[in-house]
Structures are given as C-alpha cells and as structure tokens.
Nucleic acid binder design. Sequence first.
DNA 1: CCGATCAATTACGTATACATTAATGTATCC
DNA 2: GGATACATTAATGTATACGTAATTGATCGG
Lengths: 243, 243
Amino acid sequence: MPRASKAAVSRSKARPPRAVQRPAPSVSARDEAYLALKRLIMTNQISAGSQILESEAAERLGMSRTPVREAMIRLEQEGIVELRSRHGMRVLPLSASDMQEIYEVLTALESTAAAIVASRGLSDEELQRLRDAVNEMDRALAKDDLLRWSQADETFHLLLVDLSGNSRIRTFVGQVWEQSNRARLLTLRLRPKPVDSNKDHAALVDAIARRDPTTAKKVHEAHRRRAGAMLTALLAEHGFKQL
Amino acid sequence: MPRASKAAVSRSKARPPRAVQRPAPSVSARDEAYLALKRLIMTNQISAGSQILESEAAERLGMSRTPVREAMIRLEQEGIVELRSRHGMRVLPLSASDMQEIYEVLTALESTAAAIVASRGLSDEELQRLRDAVNEMDRALAKDDLLRWSQADETFHLLLVDLSGNSRIRTFVGQVWEQSNRARLLTLRLRPKPVDSNKDHAALVDAIARRDPTTAKKVHEAHRRRAGAMLTALLAEHGFKQL
DNA sequence: CCGATCAATTACGTATACATTAATGTATCC
DNA sequence: GGATACATTAATGTATACGTAATTGATCGG
C-alpha cells in the first residue's frame, strides 16, 4: 500500500531514473564499517586491548548496529578482534608468542610460495615488478624513510605470494600480516636498519630468476627466521609483553 | 500480503511458540545456523555449486534471517561458500587446482608443525595420543572401514597441529581441511587403500619420539606431497572437474 | 567497613519493518 | 516480430523494536 503511492510518484515524474540523487553509494555500509574499523585498528587509533561496543561504533560511524555487527564478525574471523558478549569488540593484543606464531606461519607459507614461483618461472614483466619493489626498499632505506621502506616490504612480500598463484597462501599470509601490522609499525624505529633484509630480498629474486626453487626456499626461510628472531628479541629487550 | 502468507505457513506447521519451551538454549541461534549449514555442506547434503537464499535457509532452520545471515558471513570468511547479492549463499565447488592449493598449504603448515613438535619433544602421554590415532587407523584399515579410517586420519593430523601449540597453524589447517572435506569423502572409495599413508604416520611419530625435527619435517612433507598427487591424479583420472 | 542480595540498567541477540535495487516480465513502438 | 521502456517482483541491506541475560550498583546484614 505505501509502495503504491511511491510508484505513483515516480511515474508522475516521468523519468528521472536514478542519477539525480544517488551520487556514489558504491560501498555498502557494512563494507564501510569494516574498512573504518580495520583502519582504526591498523593505525593504532584503537589501541590493543581496548573495547568498543556495537552501539558506540555504530554511532561513531553514523549507521545502525546491524552493519557494524556484521563487520565485527568479519574482523573476528580474521583474528584481529575478539567478540565478547556484552563487552563489545576487543582489539586482540599481540604477545611475544603471538609474534612467534606469526613468523612461523610466514616462514612456512612464504618459503613455499618462493619455491612455487621459482619452480614455475616468471615472465620478464613479473620479475621486474619484484625488482621494482626491492629497489624501492633500497631507495627508502637510503633516505632513511622507514615508513616507506615498510610499505615496500609489504608490497614485496604480498607480491611474492600473489605470484605463487595459490590464493589460499595469499589469504593466510595477508591475514597474519594484518594481525602483526601494529607490532611492525610500533617497532619500526626500534629495530636496527633493515640492511640485510634488503640483501635477502635481492638474493631471493636472483634465485627465482635462476629458477632455483631449493635456494629460493632456503633463502626465504632464513630471511623470515632472522626477522622473527629479531622482532621477538626486540620485544623482550624493550619489555613489551603486549602490543 | 507477505505477512499473511508467512503467518499461514508458520501456523500450518503448528509451531508452538518457542518462548514457551526453554529447555537448553545453550547455543545461540546464530551458532545453530552456522553448525547446521556447515553440516549440510560437509555431508554433501547441499551439493557444491548449489545456492540457498537467506530466507530459504531461515525458514528451513526455523529462525529469522538475522542469525542466518551472520552464519553465512562466517562461512564465507572460512572459504566454504560465496555470498552473491540477491542469489544467496553458494557452496563453492572444488576444482583440481583448489585441491592442489590446499595440499600445498597442508604440506607447508603441517610439516612445520611436525618440526616444532619434534623439536620441543612430547610427554609420554602426548606421544601416546598420537600412537593411539595411528593404531586406530591401522585397525580401521584392517577392517576395511574407510570412513573410520578417514576420521582417525583427521584426528591424527589435527592432533599434530594442536600439539605444535601454534594456534594459527591450527586454525589455517582446520580451515583448508574443512574446505576439502567433501572431496576427501567423495574420493574415499576411489583411491587405493591408504596402506603407505599409515606407514608414513608411524615414521613421523618415530621421528618425533627421537626428537628429530629434520626427519619429521621431511617425512611429513613427503607424505602430504604424495597424498596430494594421488588425489589430484584421481580427480583427473575420473574426469572430475568440480566437486 | 566488607561482602552479598536484589533491582535497575545496559548491551546484546533475534525478529521484524522498511528501503533499495537487481531481476523479471510485459506492453508498446516501430 | 524484436528491442526497449516500464511496472512488478524478489531478495537483499539496513534500521528499529523487543525480550533476555548479564552487569552494575545500591541496600542491607554481619
């Protein structure tokens, strides 16, 4: 019944189909909530361990609880937050043992990806993309721009797993990467300059170019193992129990 | 009009108002929906590629759309279904390349878990649990009870990753295990008897007992690689493009 | 002054209402 | 007869309503 009146109205208008009042609703409220919450967490604007209620988040984002709830469920599945009934969403703190778990996963999955990539071989264009990322890291390091280095590092690692063609490896690596992103950001300025990290990457690209999966895998395993050990040592040294 | 029809349906079913009988609401409707849908998928009662609308599932499960929606979001995050707007939830079919991806992930993560376990060593009681699972597989195989064998196999593999103590490895292995469960079930009777599979497991337990991480890792890598090759060959042989 | 009991409040879980938009069917125009 | 515009329908996405259970805090007994 109420619909009838609406239909009548739209017909009387004869033809302003939709472009008039609908500028760009390209993202759903749920996606908006998901992205907004994730960004707040990733950038440490919602600190680890802190809680936020569904209704708080909904008000803050200017929408109802429903899409916020659904976004929170996604974040929980991704291992970024914990949903505690009547306490809202809690950003999971990262302990040293979490970081160890994460680096074990990264070591296992990325070294496998490296072997796959080396084994199937890359086109010149693909190889160049890897080299570009390495070069970007070098440049950033030369300029002491650690944030830029860190972004290039992420680009390199995600590109590597992308090139493996294994979408599950890609998903899982992306997931633990996001889980540990906060810790990396916070320790970026505490760690020694990542000079040998860059060397590792160059060596990996060489092994891939030579189509040598065994070496590629070994190089990357060593790289991740070292990075993990460095990071956990750093956390212990600075007395960080949780991040 | 829609209200009337729905009311009529629910009354025709003679459903007593749920509020009256409150026996054991220990599980939320959302969990119930999640478990019910997952079980239907795992047991192939909802075949791959088939779709089910939110409202259909809700009616089928006797609850409203809200908890069903949330359950579907979880299943989507787990890589079991795909959510297509206005087409409901679609059970993801498994292709040969999916199986290959999955076995690459299992190889990488489980062999790492094996190395971790061997490296830290197990208590007698923990070691015994692994041996129990192996023995159960032997017994099931001797009786030609393939379903029981398959369950013991699952027990063994999940126990292994549990014992690694790495909760993320555990989660990811569990996830790809569930993704591929249907395929394993369907091919269980097509594959050769898993005799050497049992031998592999015994060899792995020995390596763990000897606290030899290198061998443990190698044994398990070979085991998974072989199983993966067997399964993909099987799928190709029988012309299965999708499962 | 401390702990326990109970009422008020709060936050959630679920159901339902409503808005939006893709998909479908239909009539019209040439 | 075929393509297109348009109304209709269907299914989703979002908001809101509501009952329930947990948390809070206040009162009371010790």
